[in-house]
Simulated assay, not measured.
Amino acid sequence: MGSHPQRTPFYGMLMLITFMIAGLYVRDLPWLWVRVVSYVALVAFAMVGFVMTFRDLS
């Protein structure tokens, strides 16, 4: 895992925080179709961040 074994969960948390902050901006977009596409992309981004954060809990 290299010299920093906690790097992957840290990046996952950064992705989740980015997801939450970006969601605040997406809700104010003027067109519905842009919001839907943005939310779908953000949810995919958040799922990757969630897996990266909690992958070593087994």
Results as ranks from 00 to 15, higher is better:
V37T: 11
Y11A: 10
V26R: 08
V36F: 00
G49Q: 08
M52R: 10
L14C: 01
F19G: 04
Y39V: 10
G12R: 04
G49I: 04
M1L: 15
S3A: 13
S38K: 13
P9V: 01
G12D: 14
T18W: 07
M52L: 13
M13P: 05
V48H: 11
F19T: 06
M13A: 12
L57P: 03
F10W: 00
M15H: 10
W31E: 13
F45Y: 09
V40I: 09
L57K: 03
L42D: 02
M47F: 01
G49L: 13
I21Q: 04
L42Q: 08
L32G: 05
F10M: 02
L42K: 03
H4R: 08
L32N: 09
R55A: 02
Y25M: 12
M1D: 15
M52A: 10
V26Y: 11
R7A: 06
A41S: 10
V36A: 05
A46F: 02
R7K: 05
D56R: 06
G23I: 14
L57A: 02
D28G: 12
Y11E: 14
F19H: 15
L57E: 07
M47E: 07
V36S: 04
T8I: 15
Y25K: 11
M13F: 13
G12V: 14
L29R: 14
L29N: 09
V26M: 08
W31G: 09
G2L: 11
V26P: 12
H4P: 07
T53M: 13
M20W: 10
V34T: 13
I17Y: 07
F45I: 04
Y25N: 11
Y39T: 07
M47Y: 01
F45L: 12
Q6A: 03
M15W: 12
M13D: 11
M52T: 11
V51N: 03
G23R: 11
V40H: 06
S3H: 14
F10H: 00
T8W: 15
L14G: 03
R35Y: 10
I17A: 07
R35T: 10
S3W: 15
W31C: 05
W33F: 10
P30R: 06
Y39A: 04
Q6S: 04
L14K: 03
R27K: 15
V34P: 12
T18L: 06
T18F: 08
W33Y: 07
P5Q: 00
A22T: 09
V43N: 01
D56P: 01
T18I: 08
L57H: 05
M20V: 10
V26E: 12
F54M: 10
G2P: 06
A22M: 12
V37E: 07
G23F: 06
V48A: 07
P30M: 08
M47R: 05
H4W: 10
L24D: 11
A41R: 08
L57I: 03
R55Q: 01
F10Q: 00
L14E: 04
T8N: 12
I17R: 05
F19L: 04
V51G: 00
P5T: 03
Y11G: 06
L29H: 13
F54G: 00
Q6K: 01
R27V: 15
L29C: 07
T18P: 04
